[in-house]
Simulated scan of single mutants.
Amino acid sequence: MIYDESDRFNPRDPYLTASKLSKSDKRSAARQLATQALYQRHISGASLNEIEAQFCVDNDFTYADQNYFHDILYGVHTNLTKIDTALAPCLDLHIKRLDPVELCVMRLSTWELLYCIDVPYRVIINEGIELAKVYGSTDSHKFVNGVLNNMATRLRKAEFKERKR
């Protein structure tokens, strides 16, 4: 299948109705909003409650899984030390030197790799790449791809072994 940019989920599509969205579409939208919220938290240092309340007022969660958004936001915050510890060996520079957008995308994806075992690692990597393409700098998706592939081989060993069979 040839990937076409028009195939991407676009919540502003006038022909899109909530009933046409799959669970994965709603989770993709939640990841987009969570990336923005994590970035806002990283830059502003505002409380999670304030950020979540603002996002709930400013965004239409008809198209996004609000519970998954909440889980990501609080899951990344609660497990930040474990996430950064898992990320560190996969990076060739210190976490503090990373671009904030790339860092937020990789933290979100690492949280999913660690705690969302029901989501295949390939989906998590693909979603991270797409988030980096949308919100990151020109080639940040390549960096994110490399780090997340490395991370997935470390955190999802059983899934990798099963896939190779």
Rank of each mutant, 00 (worst) to 15 (best):
Y68E: 08
P120H: 07
R41V: 03
C104Y: 02
P89G: 12
N126F: 09
L98G: 09
A53D: 11
R97P: 01
Y39V: 05
L48M: 15
Q36F: 00
I72M: 07
L38Q: 03
A34R: 08
G128T: 03
L73R: 04
L93F: 12
R41Y: 12
D92H: 14
E50M: 10
M106S: 08
L48K: 14
A88L: 13
N126Y: 06
I129N: 01
F61V: 00
A64Q: 01
E130G: 02
E52H: 10
V76I: 13
A34L: 07
W111I: 01
H70F: 13
T110Q: 06
C90L: 05
F61E: 01
L87S: 07
C56N: 14
I72P: 01
L98T: 11
R31Q: 00
K82Q: 14
D118G: 05
P100K: 08
R41H: 11
V57W: 06
L73T: 06
T110P: 08
C90T: 08
H94Q: 13
L114W: 09
S44H: 13
Y68K: 02
I43V: 15
V134L: 15
Y74R: 07
I95K: 12
I125L: 14
R107G: 09
Y68M: 06
A37I: 00
D60V: 00
Q32R: 07
E50C: 06
V76F: 05
L87T: 06
L87A: 08
T85E: 13
L103V: 09
A88M: 12
V101R: 04
